[in-house]
Amino acid sequence: MTTNQEEVKLLGATGSPFVCRVQIALKLKEIEYKFVEENLVNKSELLLKYNPIYKKVPVFVHNDKPIIESLVILEYIDEIWKQNPILPSDPYQRSLARFWSKFIDDKIVLASSKSVFTIDEKEREKHIEESTEALQILENELKGKFFGGEEINFVDIAAVFIAFWIPLVQDIADLQLFTDEKFPKLYNWSQEFLNHPVVKQNLPPRDPLFAFFKARYDGLLAASK
């Protein structure tokens, strides 16, 4: 719990998987905070002040000190508030959690997004192949119910993009990128994860997000003709 002396703010945009990561971690830790919705087309003075380099969300502000980049924010939250830890206590396991979370960002988030939002057929095939390969590596790594064993941890939170965002955007482009046939363990994990009470409470509403990405996809298709 936060104390009266602490000021905790999260600058974010509803619908961002990176912001969602931070919201899940804060809820798991039972930390009270103020959410500041940002318009990324017309960025606020506050966002530009706290994140002048990247000008992106999420920005986590603790007692007027800004922390940026979602994985860095998760580590910070875990170090400051010790209850309900999300990183393993063992240094080796902790380093593995950092590795796999970065792997998700480097190998899955970008490639799977490009699988949908790339019109060039050859390029799209390349991104689908990259995504499939990376998802298979992660499938092989998953040993239990969650990446954290019986409880969700750092890697599970980082992988919210796979559980919620990939199925949403693949529906738009009619892709079969992430299915229970291709990745049974990862797919079962995604269902368990999405149904976790804390995760469920902090996911953005699907319909407006679907409409937003559908409009973007349709716009790309129209521009390519």
Rank of each mutant, 00 (worst) to 15 (best):
K82T: 06
E139M: 04
V155S: 03
I157V: 09
K34F: 04
E121G: 13
V155H: 01
C20A: 14
K214Y: 11
K49Q: 14
N63W: 07
V36Q: 08
L209F: 10
D64L: 07
W81I: 00
P85S: 07
F146R: 02
S131D: 02
P205I: 02
Q201Y: 10
K114V: 01
I108C: 01
E125Q: 14
V169E: 01
A163I: 12
N202Y: 01
E7G: 01
G144L: 05
Y187L: 01
T3H: 09
V72T: 14
I166Y: 01
K182N: 07
Q83M: 13
L10Q: 05
V59K: 05
A111C: 09
F18S: 02
Q191A: 13
I128R: 01
A223G: 02
A13E: 15
K114E: 13
F154L: 03
A25Q: 04
E123P: 01
E150Y: 07
G149E: 11
P88K: 03
G12K: 00
I77P: 00
K143D: 11
L220K: 06
E133S: 15
I119F: 09
G15Q: 10
D120Y: 12
L186R: 06
A158T: 00
V36C: 04
E79M: 06
P197I: 11
C20N: 05
P58F: 05
R94F: 06
S16W: 01
E69T: 07
F35L: 08
V160C: 08
W189D: 06
G148I: 06
A25T: 11
K200T: 11
V59Q: 03
Q136Y: 05
E79A: 06
L220G: 00
F161H: 12
E79N: 13
R124T: 04
E7R: 09
Q83A: 15
Q201P: 00
N153V: 00
F178P: 00
Y92E: 13
E192A: 09
L11M: 15
E75S: 12
N39H: 06
L87A: 04
E130T: 12
R21A: 03
Q170I: 08
N42C: 08
F117W: 10
P66F: 13
I24V: 03
G149D: 05
I108Y: 01
E139N: 10
A215V: 12
L194E: 09
R124L: 08
E123C: 03
N140L: 10
D120F: 11
Q23R: 14
K56I: 05
F193P: 00
K65R: 08
P205F: 08
D218K: 14
F164R: 08
F60A: 13
N202D: 08
D180A: 11
R94M: 02
L135K: 05
P197G: 08
K145P: 00
A173C: 11
Y33Q: 04
L220P: 00
E30D: 15
Q191N: 15
K65V: 04
D105Y: 00
K65F: 10
E133T: 14
R94N: 10
L138V: 01
I31N: 07
E75H: 07
N195R: 10
F213D: 03
F161Y: 15
Y33P: 06
D120C: 03
A223D: 09
I104M: 02
I108M: 07
P184M: 02
I162K: 05
E32S: 12
F164P: 02
E45D: 13
N84P: 10
I73V: 15
K65E: 12
K49F: 04
I108W: 06
